[in-house]
Design a protein around this nucleic acid. Structure first.
Length: 256
DNA sequence: ATGGCGGTTAGCAACCGA
């Protein structure tokens, strides 16, 4: 079984590439972020024709998250992260698929640091920490997948010294991620590949992809039930290399 | 410091986000 996460940077802009990738990789479950589409303009029909059921939480212009499942039922559990009732940003959606809880995450970028956006990022991290704790203690199979907008270690950044005051690499952000991991979650890709970067994002600027000036921003956090079933993982760089790509590549894991 | 990309608004460029 293959589960993937992909920050798609506008789903309608990227639809042909998305359909091509779905056809090639054939993931069973996909978490998408940065849909950049309002709730009524999500391309439900083309995805249905490709064999994928979908749930989504859209938003005009920014953010937006979705979960796709191939030939499977999706039972939506929630479309917001608890803790801030007036939060209008679409950054979380959660479902039950095949008796697993799948949480799709688009964590705030938080730049510039310091400032209100960084404060919002840290508040969001704290809300996620609490909700992750709740899910973990539920003692059911859980996968939290998505763009966490953080590089937890030096290995996850092509040039760490450039990012000292970047919201994605600030100690506060890295510590917040570590706090969640410490609950007992497994960082699936790092577990399988402890010493290679496994970047998932390359800036559009300055020829970053060709230089492999990348960041690892997209993660799978696995509860113990799922972690023991983990087989392999990969980053689909050829999709990032394609004409008109997102600035992220799809990342996937295979579980037994 | 610069700069690339997508989306939106107000219109054919300027901004915002990241």
């Amino acid at each position: 079984m293959i589960i993937a996460t992909y920050n798609i940077n506008s789903i309608n802009r990227r639809l042909p590439l998305l359909l091509q990738w779905l056809e090639q990789r054939k993931p069973d479950i996909v978490c998408l972020q940065e849909l950049k589409v309002n709730q009524s303009s999500f391309p439900e029909e083309p995805l249905k024709a490709a064999g994928y059921n979908a749930i989504w939480k859209g938003q005009q212009t920014w953010n937006g998250v979705a979960i796709l499942a191939r030939n499977r039922e999706i039972q939506e559990l929630r479309t917001t992260l608890p803790g801030e009732e007036d939060d209008s940003q679409s950054r979380y959606i959660e479902a039950i698929i095949d008796q697993m809880i799948i949480g799709c995450i688009y964590l705030p970028n938080g730049n510039p640091y310091p400032g209100p956006k960084f404060d919002y990022k840290l508040r969001w991290f704290e809300r996620l920490r609490k909700h992750a704790c709740f899910l973990y203690e539920y003692d059911v199979p859980v996968i939290l997948a998505g763009d966490f907008n953080v590089m937890p270690t030096e290995l996850d950044v092509y040039k760490p010294q450039k990012y000292i005051n970047n919201a994605l690499y600030r100690p506060e952000s890295r510590e917040a991620f570590e706090e969640i991991l410490k609950q007992g979650w497994t960082d699936a890709v790092r577990k399988l590949h402890p010493s290679t970067p496994e970047y998932s994002f390359w800036d559009y600027m300055r020829n970053a992809f060709a230089r492999d000036a990348g960041l690892r921003l997209d993660f799978f956090l696995l509860s113990p039930h799922i972690a023991q079933r983990l087989k392999k993982s990969g980053v689909d760089r050829e999709i990032r290399a394609a004409e008109g790509s997102s600035d992220h590549a799809p990342v996937w894991i295979e579980i037994k």
